[in-house]
């Protein structure tokens, strides 16, 4: 028993030292994907046909979509949390979280393509229906917009792109807020009548945006007019800021 406690204390100490922080966040991000993949495996092999509920496609769509949105929101919370609580180490997981949000958005899109539009083979895939969906259904259009932004941000998330884009990198990556808003609108527009759940997401996004606006007003009032505001802004916001 005392051994167990020693182990727990050692683990807590390690986390407190931030040694396992990044790996722990990584494992946490894989959790949903692993569980859903395992359940899908059980379903498709006939070992347990109830494991994804009565409507497996709907379960997979909801779970991947909500996880993408959740991780994106956590990503957007990193900078406010770091600055409010002065925990600079948080910054070390921001890029990874952003990429994981893209991964879940990709899984979400894949579920739609494979199960809804039968794109598990080229012959069955209904390309026309997909095209019609994008053009005719505003909730799918806005979802595609969110996905394309996350794709662009994931591609340009590497150190090479940070260097190449210089000041524009940060401007580009502010689109993460547009992706989050598009994701929430996508969520609202698919509801039939009850929009309480997506409205809660919208409220959280509004708080995150308000904090950002507050920060920028603070910075503007702290920086003398014309005294190189752009370079001051660039400090401490890139993916390597904490290092």
């Amino acid at each position: 028993m005392s051994r167990l406690w020693q182990g727990i204390v050692a683990l807590l100490a390690a986390i407190a030292n931030w040694r396992f922080f990044k790996p722990a966040v990584f494992v946490l991000c894989t959790y949903k994907a692993v569980v859903l993949s395992w359940r899908l495996h059980l379903l498709l092999t006939g070992k347990n046909v109830e494991v994804l509920g009565v409507d497996p496609k709907a379960t997979l769509l909801h779970e991947t979509g909500e996880t993408a949105l959740l991780i994106l929101f956590v990503t957007l919370s990193i900078t406010p949390l770091r600055r409010i609580f002065k925990v600079n180490k948080l910054q070390s997981v921001r890029r990874m979280l952003g990429v994981w949000s893209f991964v879940y958005a990709l899984l979400h899109l894949t579920v739609y393509l494979v199960f809804d539009q039968l794109c598990y083979s080229l012959e069955t895939c209904d390309f026309r229906a997909i095209w019609e969906d994008i053009l005719k259904r505003r909730f799918i259009f806005v979802g595609q917009l969110a996905f394309l932004i996350l794709l662009l941000l994931a591609i340009t998330s590497t150190g090479g792109w940070v260097r190449r884009l210089k000041k524009n990198w940060q401007r580009l990556h502010r689109l993460a807020y547009v992706a989050a808003a598009a994701g929430v609108v996508h969520f609202i527009w698919i509801q039939k009548s009850d929009i309480r759940v997506p409205l809660r997401w919208a409220a959280v996004l509004a708080v995150l945006l308000a904090i950002r606006v507050y920060f920028s007003i603070q910075k503007r009032s702290a920086t003398p007019r014309g005294a190189g505001a752009p370079s001051a802004r660039g400090v401490g916001v890139g993916p390597h800021a904490s290092k």
Binding site: L40, E50, V54, F115, Q117, A129
Partner: peptide, 13 residues
């Protein structure tokens, strides 16, 4: 679209 449907508990349309 209403062209297809999912006969539950199938995961496919």
């Amino acid at each position: 679209s209403q062209k297809r449907e999912t006969r539950l508990p199938s995961p496919l349309m």
